[in-house]
Each structure stands twice: as C-alpha cells, then as structure tokens.
C-alpha cells in the first residue's frame, strides 16, 4: 500500500523506536530490559516480536504502546515523539489509535459481552446509544451478536478471545497490540483467532504487533523481530541491521 504513494510524501511509519533502552533498578541491582533497540513498523504491517520469556518482548510492546516510558531513546507514533505529548494526549492516543488483545482476556466476568466491548468507547466518552450500535456492528462482524447480552463468564475460551478482539476493534484503532493472543487457547481455537487477526490486517489494513514465543504464529506474520536479553538479534525485514547488531 505504501508503494502507491509518491516517495517524497511517504507517510511516517506507524511506530518507530529509536535507540530504546529500558532498565529497572540501579547499581548492582540494575536490570536492562531493553538495550538500544531501534525498530520501524510501517502502517499496515504485520510484525511478530519473538523471544523467550524475559527477553524483553513484552517490555518492548509496552514501550511501543506508550504504556511505559523508555529510560533512553524515543518512540514515534505516526512521526510524533511520544515524549512531546501530555498525559492527556497519550491517553487519547491509546484510546483512539490502539487496540489491545491480551492472553488472559481481562474481561469483566460479571458484565455482559456488549458492556465489555463498549469499554473503550465509554472511556472515550461516547453516548450509550452510539457506542452500543458500534459494538453490535463489531460483534456481528465477529459472529458474536447472539452473545451480546450474555455475561462474559459464560463464554468459551474462543468466544472470550473474540470478545477481546471485538473490544480492541470497537474504537477503530490503526494498531492492534496482541500479547500472546493464542496462549490460553487450544490449537484449533487458536488457529481461528489467528485467522481473524490476520484478516483484520489484510482487509482493514490494521497494523498488527503480535508478541509471542510461538514460532508457528510468528511465521505467519510478514516480519519477525527476535529479541534476546533486551537486544534485537534478528529482524527479517532488515537483514543489514541484524548484521550490524551482531
């Protein structure tokens, strides 16, 4: 898609990390979660961030999603430095531009499916009528409309994750961050959820950032970024960069 635009007016990348570092503690207790990570994700890309537990992949996602501030370096979202934004603007950004899918769903068990799905719209301050209408559209597109009034606790695992995706989609985000989206699902259901995420990327052009340690899932993405001990050890889209970092 980006190839259609004139090179001079190329849109800035959806997400860009420039020499990111993140460390916790200090002195002997200092722990470097990320060291000098640079990464550029274009709009509409599907990127897997891969690595073992403790490799810093979740931290990278948090920093990219401006849930956490880096110790050094900067994050640019559509070309805007996140540091230059106020807390209010960051909240707006996460609310309008980002959708989140987590391994453990984080659904409100006692609330209905539709109330869970409308949460980002409620936070955005939309009126009840408008947000329910939008939620119904999204639920319909995910084949969940008949479950709209059901309590979240009554759903199966696959239905729960589809509800989570509906919630992530409700605010019409440009980027969806998925942290181990299939980690809690059996392989058949997991495959369905994967198909759903990739179709969103293909059909709606939503940028997909998937954090996973599942190689099969990673292999389905356009690009794989491998992290080890807080450093990028390989990036399938930038073999040159990979050489440089070694």
């Amino acid at each position: 898609m980006s190839s259609l635009t004139a090179p001079a007016a190329a849109p800035p990348p959806a997400l860009e990390a420039v020499h990111l570092s993140k460390h916790y503690g200090s002195g002997a207790n200092r722990f470097d979660a990320l060291s000098d990570v640079s990464l550029s994700i274009a709009a509409g890309e599907c990127v897997a961030i891969v690595g073992k537990s403790g490799s810093g992949k979740s931290t990278l996602m948090h920093v990219l999603a401006v849930l956490d501030a880096p110790s050094e370096g900067e994050v640019r979202i559509h070309g805007t430095n996140a540091r230059s934004l106020s807390a209010r603007a960051l909240n707006r950004l996460r609310n309008r531009e980002f959708g989140f899918v987590f391994q453990q769903f984080f659904l409100n068990a006692q609330q209905s499916v539709i109330d869970n799905v409308t949460l980002p719209l409620t936070i955005a301050g939309q009126r009840r009528g408008a947000r329910r209408e939008r939620a119904r559209d999204v639920l319909a597109s995910l084949d969940l409309l008949e479950k709209a009034a059901a309590k979240a606790i009554t759903l199966s695992g696959g239905q729960k994750q589809r509800t989570v995706i509906a919630r992530a989609l409700a605010g019409s985000p440009s980027v969806i961050f998925a942290d181990e989206p299939t980690g809690n699902l059996d392989s058949a259901t997991g495959a369905l959820v994967e198909d759903l995420l990739f179709s969103l990327n293909r059909e709606q052009g939503i940028t997909l950032v998937i954090v996973t340690h599942d190689d099969e899932l990673a292999a389905r993405c356009d690009r794989q970024v491998v992290l080890r001990d807080g450093r990028i050890v390989s990036d399938s889209a930038a073999p040159v960069l990979e050489e440089a970092s070694r």
């Binding site: 999603a65 849930l67 807390a87 209010r88 960051l90 909240n91 707006r92 950004l93 996460r94 609310n95 309008r96 989140f100 984080f106 949460l119 980002p120 936070i123 955005a124 605010g171």
Partner: peptide
C-alpha cells in the same frame, strides 16, 4: 490497568 491502557485518565 486495562482501563488505563485504554486511555482512562
């Protein structure tokens, strides 16, 4: 945490 991640102040 979720509400804050979704932009609640």
């Amino acid at each position: 945490g979720l509400m804050k991640a979704m932009g609640m102040s």
